[in-house]
Amino acid sequence: MIEFTNWDILRNLLLAARWTIALSLTAFIGGTIVGLLLTAMRLSGRRPLQWLVRGYVELFQGTPLLMQLFLVFFGLSLLGFDISAWAAAAFALTFFTSAFLTEIWRGCIDTLPRGQWEASRCLGLNFKQTLSRVILPQAVRVALAPTVGFSVQVVKGTALASIIGFVELTKAGTMLNNATFEPFKIFAMVALIYFALCYPLSLASQRLEKKFNGSR
């Protein structure tokens, strides 16, 4: 058995945490882009597109993230695509994030009074102009806090990628434990690192909520 000092453990966990951060950022940025596309589709007023978006959102909200990971990872290999654990995790988390963000943003856009759409229509603005100049600037203010708040779920969601063998924070913790047999110490450290990542995000979310609550 190899001897690990506390510093060795922490150093390795922190190195692995870089992958947790990378995966979170990828999923969040990818999820934002896909979510924006889905939101635009939903607002387009075209029925088939709206159904598609609704089906997508329901599918990813109604199934465990772990199953989504398995389906992407094992499903794509079955279809003959050689997909790495990193790519599978990035895709699955992107889908997951986009579905939830689409739903969060739907709520934010729906809180805007219908009169904003009607006034824009009566002034001759087209759909794109109404969305970009009237609806989105207002919706973004409302959406910022819950969106940042949801990013916490994304960070924690990346832990599941350990199960398909992607070496991020949780997987590194498991591996270190297998070598040292000090589960409490190691997983306490893992938890603390997750907390250090998530706490600033939820703090930012609370600040944003205060800032934009009730102001223009």
Partner: peptide, 15 residues
Amino acid sequence: ARSVGMVFQSFNLFP
């Protein structure tokens, strides 16, 4: 919209 203007009960200004 170029021929007909409309004013609403709830103003509907862009805040």
